[in-house]
């Protein structure tokens, strides 16, 4: 089983707020992979909006994403893209 991780910078102005967390969780659910996000000493399963909100990831925070499973690589790539594209938000 492949396992891969990377760290991304939260760049959108509002951070990982409810809508961004929902988009991320919806994306995470599309992959056959266990996705976990880490920030400081907190961690959250990628498919749980509540847990993602609890990370309180604001603009400028570094977030580590670990993906395990058959789809680990495309999952990490897609999540990295979403974060880099600021969750498709207009600012």
């Amino acid at each position: 089983m492949s396992e891969i991780e990377d760290t991304f910078l939260i760049q959108n102005k509002c951070g990982l707020h409810a809508r961004a967390a929902t988009i991320l969780a919806q994306l995470a659910q599309q992959f056959n992979a266990t996705i976990t996000l880490y920030q400081g000493d907190k961690e959250a399963p990628g498919d749980s909006v509540l847990a993602l909100l609890m990370l309180e990831s604001s603009h400028g925070k570094q977030i580590r994403v670990r993906c395990q499973g058959p789809d680990a690589e495309p999952a990490l790539h897609a999540i990295g893209e979403l974060i880099a594209q600021k969750f498709h938000e207009d600012e």
Partner: peptide, 17 residues
């Protein structure tokens, strides 16, 4: 006030979780 909004959301999420 995005920072304070995010903090409140995190705390509420913690309770609802």
């Amino acid at each position: 006030d995005n920072a304070s909004h995010l903090k409140t959301l995190a705390e509420i999420a913690g309770k609802l979780n």
